[in-house]
């Protein structure tokens, strides 16, 4: 269900600070809402952690609480020293992980 989308520039110059945008389609059920028919609380189910790795090293991460909106959007920067590959991972409350990879060429 959850579909990640990531925007990373295809190329950059050495040590350039690039901006990365990520978004994953996810309801982010907060655990606060009630089912209108039964009156019972709908259990929480959110993306609770995001990590960004570059060539295997973690460069950015976010601990996420239910107060982050549905389809969580994250924008951040990375200083790229060399060509390589980004790996982005989203961790769901149900234990599933979603990931996306993007290559960048540094001239």
């Amino acid at each position: 269900m959850a579909r990640p989308r990531v925007k990373v520039p295809k190329s950059a110059s050495k040590d350039e600070v690039i901006t990365i945008k990520t978004l994953i389609s996810h309801k982010m059920e907060s655990g606060q809402r009630k089912d209108k028919k039964t009156g019972e609380k709908i259990p929480r189910k959110i993306i609770n952690k995001f990590t960004a790795k570059f060539n295997g090293t973690q460069v950015f991460a976010v601990d996420i609480e239910p107060a982050v909106s549905a389809n969580p959007f994250l924008q951040f920067t990375v200083k790229v020293p060399e060509s390589g590959e980004f790996e982005f991972t989203w961790l769901d409350d149900d234990g599933k992980t979603y990931s996306a990879k993007k290559k960048i060429t540094v001239n």
Partner: peptide
Amino acid sequence: LATGNPFAGVATFHFSHMSGEATATTRIRL
């Protein structure tokens, strides 16, 4: 932190020296 929400915690960003700049954007519920 969102001080008026049922739970105050919203998100914690973890940067590194490779971040280049300490800046981050997201969208939250209030």
